[in-house]
Structures are given as structure tokens and as C-alpha cells.
């Protein structure tokens, strides 16, 4: 089981990212993080599983995040390149303009040094590689100054 940092704590991650959409949504295992295009068929909602999340890239338009998607307990922004700062604005829009209240996660090729910035943009959990420097991740989260604005 991979690790995640959630609410400032390093814990084992119960979630598993699924890369391929399934034809039948009921086939997704519990605690799957499913690609966004694997959840668009409204006729298969409501989902039988309580714990399903959706993942999507940083170029995702807000219109693609429907009310149904917002009802999921976890949304996961997947970062291909740490230099692509759209991830921060997308997180901010999800947590403010769309008012998402569930677990907002970042995964992929982000820098541990960016975690405090993600947190300030509304991200609540991070999926970390097994070889991550967890001490540095916690250091960044604990020591980064918080802005007043």
C-alpha cells in the first residue's frame, strides 16, 4: 500500500488509482480513483459503491466537473509536470468556485516543495511515491509560512 499525507499526517493510502475506465461502473473496486471519463454515463449513477474517487489532469475544464462528480468523496488532480502551475488554479477553483468539500488530492510528478502551496489552494491530501523523502515533505508542510490574504 502506497503512502499519503492527509491533514498533515503520513498514513497508508487505502485508495488505488485506476487508469482504465470500466464499461460497468459497478465493477470498480471500492476505494478506486477512476479516470473522469470513466464516470460520465449518467445512467449508471448512483454508484453502488460509497467510496469511489475521480482523477483528472491539470488541463481539465471546470465544466467537466459536474454535480455528480462533486458528490464523490475524493477528487484527484494528477500532475504530469511539476512546472505546470495550472494544478494550483484548478485546485483553487474546485475548492472555492465549485465549493468541493470532499478530499481534494494531488498525485503524480509534483515536488514535495510544492505541497504547502497546494495546501493553501485547498488540497487536503497528497499521494506520495514509496521512495519519497517523507521527512522533507512533513518539514515543508510544517514550516512554510501562511499568508494573510
Amino acid at each position: 500500500m502506497a503512502m499519503q499525507i492527509k491533514q498533515g499526517m503520513l498514513i497508508k493510502d487505502p485508495w488505488l488509482k485506476v487508469n482504465q475506465p470500466a464499461d460497468k461502473y459497478r465493477d470498480y473496486p471500492w476505494f478506486s480513483i477512476v479516470p473522469l471519463n470513466g464516470l460520465h454515463d449518467k445512467s449508471q449513477w448512483p454508484l453502488p459503491q460509497t467510496w469511489i474517487g475521480a482523477w483528472f489532469g491539470v488541463g481539465t475544464e471546470l465544466q467537466q466537473i459536474t454535480e455528480l462528480i462533486l458528490s464523490l468523496p475524493l477528487l484527484n488532480i494528477h500532475v504530469d509536470s511539476f512546472a505546470d502551475g495550472r494544478a494550483f488554479s484548478l485546485a483553487k477553483q474546485l475548492s472555492t468556485a465549485l465549493g468541493y468539500k470532499g478530499e481534494l488530492r494531488v498525485s503524480g510528478n509534483f515536488l514535495l516543495d510544492q505541497m504547502a502551496q497546494f495546501k493553501e489552494c485547498g488540497v487536503t491530501s497528497f499521494s506520495l511515491r514509496d521512495d519519497s523523502d517523507f521527512d522533507h515533505a512533513m518539514y515543508i508542510l510544517e514550516h512554510s509560512p501562511k499568508r494573510e490574504f
Binding site: 511539476f82 505546470d84 502551475g85 494550483f88 510544492q114 494573510e148
Partner: peptide
């Protein structure tokens, strides 16, 4: 200046 220093959303602009 105060607003932009350490702005979390705009640290990795294009």
C-alpha cells in the same frame, strides 16, 4: 508586494 510574495496559486505560471 505582500500579496504576491509566496502567492501559492501563482508560483508556477507559464
Amino acid at each position: 508586494r505582500q500579496w504576491s510574495i509566496g502567492h501559492p496559486e501563482f508560483a508556477y505560471l507559464p
